[in-house]
Simulated scan of single mutants.
Amino acid sequence: MTSAPAPPLSPVLAPAGVYAPQHDTALLTRAVTAEQPGPGTEVLDLGTGTGAVALHAARTGARVTAVDISWTAVLTARLNAARARCRLRVHRGDLTAPVTGRTFDLVVSNPPYVPAPEETPPASGPARAWDAGPDGRALLDRICADAPAALRPGGTLLLVHSALCGTEATLSRLAAAGMRAEVSDRVRIPYGPVLTGRHEWLVARGLADGSPWEELVIVRAVHA
């Protein structure tokens, strides 16, 4: 399991409605570093937000494609790439839809994964960047199902999410999709404002105990 500190995140613009880099961003960036991408590596970032993780990969010389369903996020990632003078292809679309038929060496994602009382994730507003249905798996389950088709044989998926969403569920779904999956890194962090406001609801649903801490995990899965 990775023990090196996460590399410092380069400053990026994060306007209202676009997820600002936080602990999960840093954890995913550390996981990308451990994969040692470089020139010739084809990387896909699903749900890129500000583009922070995609830009980190691009700085290694990797050829990076980023996708987000939010036009605000797409434009933000493009602007951050221009400011950093990094080459980054950013498409607007739903997960892997804009890259259908293409395959990559490395697929990374920090999708919305926060459990929310609403059955359907919001289609607009700031919460779109984190709310993911009552179990937090509205996007996670789709990524587990779609990732194999986007990966070359031997390619790797790096997926970050909260253990509140069910780490074993992610591992099981990826295994069912024919991938070798494991938790490669984890970190405990205090609840932020969103989870703090939902703590009683999370406990009532059996998703959390009484502790004001959550565990973030990196699930690493290799395409057989």
Rank of each mutant, 00 (worst) to 15 (best):
G136E: 04
A34M: 15
I218E: 00
T60C: 12
T120D: 09
V107E: 09
E182L: 03
G210K: 15
V107A: 04
D24K: 10
W130C: 07
R87K: 09
V64D: 01
P121A: 09
L140T: 07
P212M: 09
L13I: 15
A132I: 10
A14K: 14
Q36R: 11
G51N: 11
P193Y: 10
V203W: 07
P148W: 01
E214Q: 14
P190N: 12
I189F: 07
L171W: 00
T100R: 13
G192F: 12
L9G: 02
A34Q: 12
L79W: 10
G155D: 07
V32D: 00
G101E: 01
Q22H: 15
G155A: 06
V53Y: 01
D135C: 09
A123W: 14
A4C: 13
A224C: 13
R198L: 15
S10A: 15
L158K: 10
L174H: 00
H161C: 07
A123C: 14
L140G: 07
P112W: 04
A208L: 04
L158F: 01
H223K: 13
V219H: 01
R59P: 11
A20D: 13
D105E: 06
L151M: 08
T196N: 10
S10R: 08
V43E: 03
C86D: 05
L207K: 06
S3I: 12
A129K: 03
L159V: 07
L75T: 10
L164K: 10
G40R: 04
P134V: 09
G38F: 05
Y191A: 06
L55W: 00
S172R: 08
W201E: 08
R142F: 04
A221G: 07
A84E: 04
N80F: 12
L27R: 06
H161G: 07
S184L: 07
L106Q: 03
E215F: 05
L207I: 14
L151H: 04
S184T: 06
A116T: 05
A129F: 02
R87D: 03
S3A: 14
D141S: 11
